[in-house]
């Protein structure tokens, strides 16, 4: 007996073939019903994996592997598998899953292949974060990113990484992925023009609503997952309620909005995206933990002057 997990990857349009977190929704929904049988994840419609898709896939596998006898991944062709190999995906998951591609051959091909910003990062504690940030900062410097941009990207990443390992025990710690693109990957009007840095982080902890529920002050803000996510974006809202806490996510939201990007939070059945001037929410299949995605569009050099700063 086996369960086939389908994806919702677009077949046409701007998002065609892209593995996003949203495209994993049907698989997350189906994964809830897996009880020991083999689970087969069909990635054949995937042509391109963005960081949120990569982190989402890692979180899905961490959820599935303990619940199924065997997890299989099905790819069409070699491109996506080769990309995942470059992202260190098979180093982390190769021995825990079964695939229809020869991973050893991918490893062989990988040598000397540049062109990626950062492999999939697996981490478990706050102590690991400064080293991760150092590495990303170095890569960004080598790619010609200026100090202001690096500061925005790295401060965002470190803040969200710290949240991921701080709030409640996650059996697998957390995964982070960062990529820089020569085009805009996220949907919307600006799609296709300009450059974009995408940051995604997933943990398997108790989730935002549960964390905020520990603080009885927030009772009226934790009635639903989306209420809790919207509240978590506000300055000074934290599970402990200690003064000074709960500022990180609010600052990250401001950084993303100022860059013309967005901050998306997903936890349990909630999903909230913050754009600065508006916040969208909707209900989604349960995500077993917390997921954060930050889009930082990269503007032309002229736009990097302090005119874009606060006030």
């Amino acid at each position: 007996m086996r369960t086939q997990l389908e994806l919702n990857v677009r077949r046409k349009g701007a998002m065609r073939g892209i593995l996003t977190l949203g495209s994993l929704d049907p698989a997350f929904a189906a994964a809830q019903g897996v009880e020991g049988e083999m689970a087969l994840l069909d990635l054949r419609g995937v042509e391109f994996v963005e960081p949120a898709g990569l982190c989402g896939l890692a979180a899905l596998l961490e959820f599935l592997i303990p619940r199924s006898r065997l997890v299989g991944l099905r790819f069409s062709g070699h491109d996506v598998a080769a990309y995942l190999e470059r992202m260190d995906f098979f180093r982390i998951f190769g021995h825990r899953i079964e695939t229809n591609v020869d991973v050893a051959a991918l490893e062989e091909r990988r040598r000397g292949n540049p062109g990626t910003l950062q492999e999939l990062i697996s981490f478990h504690s706050e102590e690991e974060i400064p080293e991760i940030i150092n590495r990303i900062s170095e890569i960004l410097t080598n790619k010609g990113y200026g100090l202001r941009e690096r500061a925005a990207i790295c401060a965002t990443l470190s803040e969200i990484c710290a949240n991921a390992v701080e709030h409640g025990h996650s059996p697998f710690g957390a995964y982070a992925a960062v990529q820089a693109y020569q085009h805009i990957v996220s949907g919307g009007r600006e799609r296709g023009r300009g450059e974009e840095v995408l940051v995604a982080i997933a943990d398997g902890g108790v989730g935002i609503r549960e964390t905020l529920s520990r603080n009885s002050e927030y009772a009226e803000h934790t009635a639903s997952d989306n209420d809790a996510l919207r509240h978590a974006l506000k300055m000074g809202v934290s599970g402990t309620g200690e003064i000074g806490r709960g500022g990180g996510l609010a600052v990250v939201g401001q950084i993303a909005a100022r860059a013309g990007g967005s901050l998306s939070l997903r936890s349990s059945s909630g999903r909230v995206t913050f754009y600065g001037d508006r916040t969208n929410s909707r209900n989604v299949p349960t995500f077993p933990g917390t997921f954060v995605r930050v889009s930082l569009p990269r503007k032309a050099a002229d736009d990097q002057l302090p005119s874009a700063s606060k006030n």
Binding site: L147, C154, A155, S158, E159, G244, R245, V251
Partner: peptide, 15 residues
């Protein structure tokens, strides 16, 4: 310092 996140700022200077 090239970059500082909110957590560091609060812990080092806020406190």
């Amino acid at each position: 310092v090239e970059l500082m996140d909110y957590s560091f700022a609060d812990e080092a200077l806020g406190i």
